[in-house]
């Protein structure tokens, strides 16, 4: 068993594609059931408690994403090399016991684990955004559309998605999650924002500028072995 989750598209390419799809489908079904149970439970909480808990968790997740993106943009943490990861995962999959007749258990288990683990964090973010706006259904629909788009892309390409500007996307998502987390968390704790929702763009801009400044700081301060440097938005490499 590999120590990290392989991508379903890699497994589908190197093992039995039908078993990889079955594992992916099973994980999506589990996530759908989790959404159906957790969604109503979240919306039944008092709005201040919901915003405090949800804001706090969004903020923790957002800061984790932002921290990694800053360190990667500064070259202090290795970038995801999709080509290398693809080759490594493909070699692991080929080294595993060969599939016999029927279900390829290796392909099923790896795809189930990868989709369920990665999907859980996304599910939580979607549910919390939806619950805060009292529209879990719309948020879940948008998330399902995104899942289908990524799944379709993975199946169509069946190769590493090396051209996706992963770190820039994570940087932006980290800023947005952190801004919404601060906004909702503080509201849930009893604070009132000047201008209410109008303060959100200022929060986003403030966090983005802070994070960009931190990239510059980290680039100057790092003492690690030079690693590939990702362009952060607005920062020259």
């Amino acid at each position: 068993m590999p120590t990290h989750a392989s991508s379903p598209s890699t497994i589908a390419r190197t093992r039995k594609a039908s078993s990889a799809l079955a594992g992916t489908g099973a994980a999506l079904a589990v996530l759908a059931v989790a959404a159906a149970v957790l969604g109503p439970a979240l919306t039944s909480l008092p709005i201040s408690v919901l915003r405090l808990v949800v804001g706090g968790l969004l903020l923790v997740f957002g800061l984790q994403w932002l921290r990694k993106a800053i360190l990667r943009a500064a070259g202090a943490k290795a970038l995801h090399d999709e080509e290398a990861i693809f080759a490594e995962q493909a070699a692991e999959a080929e080294d595993a016991p060969p599939p016999g007749e029927g279900l390829d258990r290796y392909a099923f288990a790896i795809c189930f684990k990868a989709v369920a683990l990665e999907g859980l964090e996304v599910l939580f973010i979607v549910l919390t955004f939806g619950a805060n706006q009292h529209d879990v259904g719309l948020a879940a629909l948008a998330a399902a559309a995104a899942v289908l788009a990524v799944l379709g892309l993975g199946l169509a390409v069946r190769a590493p998605l090396a051209r996706v500007p992963e770190n820039t996307m994570k940087f932006a998502v980290g800023v947005l999650l952190s801004a919404f987390g601060i906004f909702w968390g503080a509201e849930g704790a009893g604070a009132s924002w000047p201008g209410n929702e109008a303060s959100l763009p200022f929060l986003v801009a403030f966090l983005a500028l802070t994070a960009l400044a931190l990239v510059r700081y980290a680039r100057g301060a790092r003492r690690t072995v030079p690693a590939p440097v990702a362009p952060a938005p607005g920062v020259e490499a």
């Binding site: 903020l59 800061l63 921290r67 800053i70 360190l71 604070a191 929060l203 403030f206 700081y217 003492r223």
Partner: peptide, 25 residues
């Protein structure tokens, strides 16, 4: 008035976390 607390403190902790990740200077 408490809205300013998180926007002030969160960047402080983010800076501390980045400094920790970069190791001793």
């Amino acid at each position: 008035a408490a809205w300013w607390v998180a926007p002030v403190l969160i960047p402080v902790f983010l800076v501390a976390s980045i400094r920790r990740a970069l190791g001793p200077r």
